[in-house]
Structure formats: structure tokens, C-alpha cells
């Protein structure tokens, strides 16, 4: 098989502006998500992810404008998440030019949104974002639960069971973030990534904790992820997309090299 493993940079967008601008290139406007998208497109990123963290629902229109302008300027696939509550929100993003839309809290509250969205847009367009945290005591069997609100609110829902349930309902991909590792640069939670990847037949994107290029490799070889997502190592220019791809290819992972 020749399907390549994907590297996905993720940009946090608030009120239409990038929260942490990328600084690996001289951009005219580091706060403009479209400028960042163009830079990642040119750098060979396999997909791009926008996470809209706009707090108020009234300003949701700003992300639509970002997606529209990105689609007009970049011939690369884009996933958009954050604040998606209804099937109508999915439709608006798809029409603006998103290829996939990721649903997080709304699916935790009411899983039926996954099936309703997949019926309209096809499973391939619907990503369910899972924020999971380890809840077993040391020495006990591994167990992870779904958390919402940036890892603050426990839901009591088992992460593996939830992943299987949303896959059955029609999700086409799972974006899996370890809330224990997010922002730590300590690497993915590989046990979690592997447990979820092996529990479902849809692709799993590993996220949360990337600090080195070896972490990206491990996410695929040990975590069995289909794609790896990272933010700061790329945004701050610690590593380029090309370096990451070359490193992963050297480790024997099939990559799309420029």
C-alpha cells in the first residue's frame, strides 16, 4: 500500500486571528491565518487544521471568512473544528471550503449529531475530536475518560467505548488529544493512541505532547496512528515540515516527500 502518513499542523484561531502566529517564515501578517495556511501549503504539510477558539457565538462568522479565503488560496485539505454545535454549523463550514469538520463537545452531549452530520456530508467529512485523560490509579489497568472544556470537566465516559460508538454512528476520523500530554512536549500518550487506533476501523490522528521528531515517529510506529498533529514545534520553527517528513521517512514510514 502506498497511502502516506499525514503530518497536520494545527492553528488556533480566535476572532479570525491566529493566537500564536507562526514564525518560521517572514510573513506579511503573522496574525493572519490565511498567510500561515499558505506558508504551510508551500512547506508541504499534508493537511491543515484550524481550531476556532472564538468564545462568543456571535463572532463565529470570522472562521467562515478564514476558511473561505484559505480555500481560495491553498490547494490543500483543511479540517476545521471548535464551536460546532449543530449540523447547520457543519454545513456552513463545508460550504466555505472545509474538507472535514471536527465535532467535540456537541458529540459528547448528544452523539446523534455524528450520525446526522455523516448522513448529510458523508462519513469522510466528519471528524470527532476526543479529549481524553488517564483516570486509572498507578498499578491499575489503563483507563481513559473523555474530558471537556480543555480538560477541566470530567464526563465519566470511557474513551475507548466512546470512540467505538462515534465510529459506529458514522464518524470518518478521530482526532485524539491526550489532555495529560497536551502542551508538555513529552510525547504522545502512546498507550492511549494505540488503544483507540486498535479499537476502531477509521483513521486516528494523534495529538497532544509533541516535542521532538521522534515523538512523531512513535505516534505512528507504536501508537498506530494514521496521522500526526502538532502545533508549537512547527509554529515556532523548531522543526520544519520537510525535516519532520524526512525524519519519519528515514524511520521507514511512508511519507509524501516534496
Amino acid at each position: 500500500m502506498t497511502l502516506k502518513t499525514r503530518i497536520i499542523p494545527c492553528l488556533d484561531v480566535k476572532n479570525g486571528r491566529v493566537v500564536k502566529g507562526i514564525n518560521f517564515l517572514d510573513l506579511a501578517d503573522v496574525g493572519d491565518p490565511v498567510e500561515s495556511a499558505k506558508a504551510y501549503d508551500a512547506a508541504g504539510a499534508d493537511e491543515l487544521c484550524f481550531l476556532d477558539i472564538t468564545a462568543s457565538h456571535e463572532n463565529r462568522g470570522t472562521i467562515l471568512d478564514v476558511v473561505r479565503r484559505t480555500a481560495e488560496n491553498c490547494f490543500m485539505p483543511v479540517t476545521v473544528g471548535g464551536g460546532v454545535r449543530e449540523v447547520e454549523d457543519v454545513r456552513a463550514l463545508m460550504l466555505a471550503g472545509a474538507d472535514k469538520v471536527s465535532i467535540n463537545t456537541a458529540a459528547v452531549k448528544d452523539r446523534s449529531i455524528v450520525g446526522r452530520a455523516a448522513e448529510k456530508f458523508g462519513a469522510q467529512a466528519i471528524v470527532v475530536a476526543i479529549d481524553a485523560k488517564r483516570v486509572n490509579a498507578p498499578g491499575e489497568a489503563d483507563r481513559w475518560e473523555i474530558f471537556t472544556h480543555g480538560g477541566r470537566n470530567p464526563t465519566g465516559i470511557d474513551a475507548i467505548e466512546y470512540a467505538q460508538a462515534v465510529a459506529d454512528l458514522g464518524a470518518g476520523e478521530i482526532l485524539l488529544t491526550s489532555m495529560d500530554r497536551d502542551g508538555t512536549k513529552a510525547g504522545f500518550d502512546l498507550a492511549l493512541t494505540r488503544a483507540i487506533s486498535e479499537a476502531v476501523t477509521i483513521p486516528v490522528v494523534a495529538s497532544g505532547g509533541v516535542g521532538t521528531l521522534d515523538h512523531l515517529v512513535e505516534g505512528v510506529t507504536l501508537g498506530k496512528a494514521s496521522a500526526v498533529l502538532a502545533a508549537s514545534i512547527f509554529h515556532y520553527g523548531t522543526y520544519s515540515i520537510a525535516e519532520a517528513k524526512a525524519h519519519m521517512a528515514k524511520a521507514g514510514i511512508p511519507m509524501r516527500l516534496a
Partner: peptide
Amino acid sequence: KVPHMGWN
């Protein structure tokens, strides 16, 4: 995995 998702 299905969907077939990515670059080929």
C-alpha cells in the same frame, strides 16, 4: 482504515 484518507 476506511475512509481511505490522505495522499496516494
